[in-house]
């Protein structure tokens, strides 16, 4: 593995309502890669992502233990708002602010974090983000349109634009295509591969084929534990673990 590790997870345990969902996860995510986390539903993949940007802070019945280091800094010692600015997230189902315009959806993050000094700069940033999310051509003539009126695939790309507008170090993607049709899925997958040039992407998927198509590294999680982790080509061609082999062949 590359020596430049952007995100390091050590002995991560998460309990929800007293039930242990993650039972000690260790992972190292190399900078500039697409790192896929795959596993059957209920294995704790999404739980892991939400521990990284501390979304669990809001839920009193969730306990997080262990260490998560972003650029060497313990995320649980950071200001959560600063952390979440550095770690973007795209959710399982598109969740734009439906009542706001396309423009405002992308602009709201940079505005709240006071990242831009002028209106022109904000407009440039919104355009940049929408282009990176491959949405610009479809919406550039009508940026005032309400986000709720976009199609599902467009909404999800808007959410990607919204996340990257903050220029995060790491982009978390929680099964971003699970609610989308085949065509939309393909576009988003191509998009993710492009994003690798500027961001590190940590993507959760329950679909091993998706992991194989787009990722550089993959971790297979089962029942709250990492079963196997390594470069994608290796895991898919020479799985060391029997369970991994079954999973990539679609038998689990």
């Amino acid at each position: 593995m590359s020596s430049d590790i952007i995100l390091k997870i050590e002995k991560l345990k998460v309990k929800i309502s007293g039930k242990e969902i993650l039972k000690g996860i260790d992972l190292e995510v190399p900078r500039g890669s697409i790192f896929a986390i795959m596993g059957p539903s209920g294995s704790g993949k999404s739980t892991l992502l939400r521990a990284i940007n501390r979304l669990w802070d809001l839920y009193p019945d969730v306990e997080v233990e262990g260490k998560i280091l972003l650029e060497g800094r313990d995320v649980y010692q950071m200001d959560p708002h600063e952390l979440r600015k550095m770690v973007g997230m795209v959710f399982q189902r598109p969740n734009p602010f439906p009542h706001m315009s396309i423009f405002d959806n992308v602009a709201i993050g940079p505005k709240m974090h006071k990242m831009v000094k002028s209106k022109e700069e904000l407009e440039r940033l919104v355009e940049w983000s929408l282009k990176r999310a491959y949405l610009w051509d479809e919406v550039k003539d009508d940026l005032k349109r309400k986000a709720g009126r976009l199609s599902g695939g467009q909404q999800q790309r808007l959410c990607i634009a919204r996340a990257i507008a903050l220029k995060p170090k790491v982009l978390l993607m929680d099964e971003p295509t699970s609610a989308l049709d085949v065509v939309s899925t393909k576009r988003i997958e191509e998009n993710i591969v492009e994003l690798k040039k500027e961001f590190t992407v940590l993507i959760v998927t329950h679909n091993p084929q998706q992991a194989a198509r787009i990722s550089d590294y993959v971790a297979f999680i089962y029942d709250g534990k990492v079963v196997e982790v390594g470069p994608t080509s290796e895991i898919f061609t020479r799985p060391k673990h029997e369970l991994t082999e079954k999973y990539v062949l679609g038998k689990v």
Binding site: Q92, G109, R162
Partner: peptide, 25 residues
């Protein structure tokens, strides 16, 4: 919840999510 989390994941404080972003909703 997903929409509230969308705001939080951008690093926007909870109070601003509740009183500013969700205002229109």
């Amino acid at each position: 919840k997903l929409i509230k989390e969308g705001g939080l994941a951008l690093g926007i404080p909870y109070s601003k999510v509740l009183f500013k972003i969700l205002r229109g909703l």
